[in-house]
Amino acid sequence: MPDEEPQHRHILTFNFRQGRNKPRHDEAFASLWPRYGLDWEPGDGPIDFPKLFGRTAPVVLEIGSGNGEAAAAMSDADRARDLLAVEVYPQGIADLMDRAAERGLDNLRIYQGDALPLLWEALAPGSLDEVRVYFPDPWPKKRHHKRRIIQPDHVRTLTALLRPGGVFHCATDIEDYAEQMLDVLTAEPALENTADGYAPRPDHRPVTKFERRGVKAGRDIFDLIFRKRR
């Protein structure tokens, strides 16, 4: 009997470049994944956040946490909320787990893999307090723009997961992607812009090594902060 067709066929929004783990990366996974890792696979059903975090609190979703510099700092400064970080690269995940352990964080969990199945199957409508998409893969070639994570369908899905009044915060150092983000987020009827166009970088979003590299290269930084209509 043939396998059932998957519920969703989709274009990947990330370009997986397999790096080489250093011993410290392997050590972080061995010692810290049981504490910080989320073992979820398509078909597992919705995530029980109170069970995952050991408490009931507002939940923030960050897609593409990179090396975890921003995720760890923001979780440390905002311990009243829980953060679910999504990342595909094991080296970045290991770095984030190390940062979390150094800070003694209990309000952070990490999912390794493609964010889209997680959005479709694991998260309940209205379950998120905030969505963060910081410096996602820009897919600079025009023929690859369809791979960008900020697309109407994905934004519609993410917006449905936000509670009324919840925040949708994006940042990029790629001007044409910023323009696309602004167009797509503005076109989503359930969202409203908190600024007149691009927003000033809020103090609570730290400037990361990646961001400093973009500024050094002469690129502007664009923050977009929208809110789900009540």
Rank of each mutant, 00 (worst) to 15 (best):
H145R: 12
L61V: 07
W139Y: 04
V131H: 05
I63D: 00
M74L: 13
D76S: 14
A80N: 08
H144E: 05
P140R: 13
L128N: 01
F49G: 06
R20N: 09
P117I: 14
L84Q: 02
N107V: 07
I110P: 06
P34Y: 03
G113A: 05
G64L: 13
R148Q: 09
A28Y: 04
P50R: 06
S31A: 15
Y36R: 09
A124M: 12
A80K: 03
Y134M: 13
N67P: 04
H145P: 07
R109I: 13
L105G: 02
V86Q: 00
P125C: 12
L52F: 06
G68R: 00
L61M: 08
A122Q: 10
D44Q: 11
P46W: 10
V86D: 00
G113E: 09
Q91E: 15
F29W: 12
V88Q: 07
L32G: 11
K146P: 08
A80G: 10
L96R: 03
R109Q: 12
D129V: 01
I47S: 10
G45E: 12
D114E: 14
Y134T: 00
W33F: 14
V88W: 01
G43H: 07
D137Q: 12
R17Y: 01
R148A: 04
T56I: 12
V88G: 01
D114T: 11
D44H: 12
P125K: 09
L105W: 01
A101C: 03
W40H: 07
P125Y: 08
R132W: 15
D26H: 07
H144P: 07
G37Q: 06
G64P: 00
F53N: 10
P125W: 11
P136V: 06
T56P: 02
L108F: 09
G43L: 11
A30M: 03
F29Y: 13
S31F: 01
L84F: 01
S31G: 07
P34H: 03
I149E: 05
Y36A: 11
S75Q: 08
Y111L: 12
W120R: 14
I47P: 07
L32Y: 11
A122F: 07
I63W: 00
K51Q: 15
Y89C: 05
D48K: 06
L52W: 05
R132V: 05
P136S: 13
K146S: 12
L32Q: 10
D82G: 04
A71S: 15
G68D: 14
